[in-house]
């Protein structure tokens, strides 16, 4: 929502003639809503910057958030909402920082406004609404960015591939296996198989809370892909309840070896590779 040239001029005039009053009232109103979680000094400098950005925009032309010369105003608003989102303020608390300007302007218009007070106020309100919406969007974008970052970090820390024996690697799966994680696990396992030249892989699902048809599908795909590359997979760590679910759902693992525990799986692989383990007799026994 853009203002007309005259309205822009009047807005800039109001904001630049009563600098102290605007900043003071604006800071007070916002500080009340934030309940002291942001220092007055910091808040004051933020709002002063925002006020200055509006005035600068008005000097360059009409105040319109979409205009090219309003880049600075947009940047200041985005920076404000980014900061609020990072510091854990709610969306309302962020938007109020901008909407509080309405009250300040109303007071100013009442005491200093001319004949067109009402029209001006409605126009300014519309502009501030647009700015508020812009703030809200930036806030949501920042939050979404944070969530995406965390999801990525989660992916990174939850899929190690460990070497158990010469030619045997294991993937201990922990947590729910969705498509994205399954993809990462699959890629990492297959890459490790190539890097280490291991012909055997054990997929341990002890840490997977539930196995549905989709999870089973992901595991089966991994096993088939490993087979295509010339490696054998063994699935281990199947808990009693999960075994029952698998049977109830009618999931077929075909000729893929499944073992109850990781130890069983390792013993199975060692037997296949011809390694024999014996217990050393105790000295003197």
């Amino acid at each position: 929502m853009a203002l007309t040239a005259e309205e822009s001029g009047r807005l800039a005039a109001l904001l630049s003639e009563h600098v102290d009053q605007v900043t003071q009232r604006w800071t007070e109103t916002v500080a009340a809503s934030l309940r002291g979680r942001l220092s007055q000094v910091e808040l004051r400098s933020q709002l002063q910057e925002l006020r200055q950005a509006i005035v600068t925009t008005a000097e360059n032309g009409i105040v319109d958030l979409d205009a090219e010369y309003a880049a600075e105003l947009r940047a200041v608003l985005a920076e404000l909402s980014r900061g609020r989102a990072r510091q854990g303020f709610s969306a309302t608390e962020t938007a109020i920082s901008v909407f509080a300007l309405k009250e300040v302007l109303l007071e100013l218009l009442e005491s200093h406004g001319g004949e067109s007070t009402l029209r001006d106020y409605v126009a300014f309100s519309a502009l501030i609404d647009t700015m508020g919406l812009f703030t809200f969007e930036s806030y949501v974008r920042t939050r979404e960015g944070l969530i995406a970052d965390q999801a990525e970090q989660l992916l990174e820390l939850s899929t190690p591939v460990v070497k158990l024996w010469e030619g045997v690697v294991a993937v201990p799966l922990v947590g729910t296996l969705d498509s994205a994680r399954a993809q990462v696990v699959m890629e990492r396992l297959l890459q490790t198989l190539v890097d280490t030249g291991s012909p055997y892989a054990i997929i341990d699902i002890t840490g997977v809370p539930a196995v549905d048809t989709q999870v089973a599908q992901h595991i089966l795909k991994t096993v088939v892909a490993a087979r295509l590359m010339g490696a054998d997979c063994i699935i281990s760590g199947i808990r009693p309840q999960i075994a029952q679910t698998i049977v109830a759902l009618g999931i077929e693992f075909g000729d893929i070896a499944t073992k109850a525990s990781l130890a069983d799986a390792l013993r199975h692989v060692l037997r296949l590779t011809g390694v024999e383990t014996t217990r050393r007799s105790r000295r003197g026994a």
């Binding site: 890629e187 030249g197 291991s198 795909k221 892909a225 295509l228 590359m229 010339g230 490696a231």
Partner: peptide, 30 residues
């Protein structure tokens, strides 16, 4: 057939091609 890359194996699985009747190994030595 030896030396299939992980990305290739994943693609084949996604496509549903299982290369029936072909033996595979990780590298030439194996």
């Amino acid at each position: 057939v030896v030396g299939m890359r992980p990305a290739v194996a994943i693609t084949l699985v996604e496509l549903g091609l299982s290369l029936n009747g072909i033996r595979t190994a990780l590298n030439v030595e194996r």
